[in-house]
């Protein structure tokens, strides 16, 4: 699977040890992520589901995302749940805006067990939240 370059957003994709790893960089400020981001994420879910891969998304280096991106991510998380794809999210705890968003996401998905949200502070080892 290839990465995605969409405006200021760059997503690098790697595959290793049964994981499909995405690293989000830059800013995701698109008013309508359904054009580029949603199909990209849906493809990732389909591939992970078919090949039984774990999806790992890293947001630590991301500068900013808007609420439309969060809405797209929420739908993506829902899709992962429907397809029984294990999802692991990493965020930068020293970025307050990331904390606000991922703290809420981790609580939303506490019950499913399919989504793990890890807080990574600069230089720290990942801390599991749910």
């Amino acid at each position: 699977m290839h990465g995605l370059a969409l405006g200021d957003l760059n997503i690098e994709v790697q595959e290793a040890d049964g994981k499909l790893v995405q690293r989000w960089k830059g800013s995701s400020n698109s008013r309508d992520p359904s054009v580029g981001l949603r199909p990209f994420l849906e493809l990732a879910v389909a591939e992970a589901s078919t090949r039984k891969l774990v999806l790992e998304l890293h947001f630590e280096d991301l500068g900013h995302f808007n609420s439309s991106t969060v809405a797209t991510l929420l739908r993506f998380i829902e899709k992962c749940g429907q397809k029984a794809v294990k999802l692991v999210l990493y965020y930068n705890g020293s970025q307050r805006w990331q904390g606000h968003n991922f703290e809420a996401i981790s609580l939303l998905n506490r019950s499913s067990g399919l989504v793990e949200v890890h807080r990574v502070d600069s230089g720290d080892a990942p801390e599991r939240m749910s």
Binding site: L74, G99, E103, A104, L107, L108, R110, S111
Partner: peptide, 17 residues
């Protein structure tokens, strides 16, 4: 003061969150 909780409109039941 940080507030612990979640958002509106994403899942059906947020009682535990």
């Amino acid at each position: 003061l940080s507030n612990q909780g979640t958002w509106i409109g994403v899942v059906d039941d947020v009682r535990n969150a």
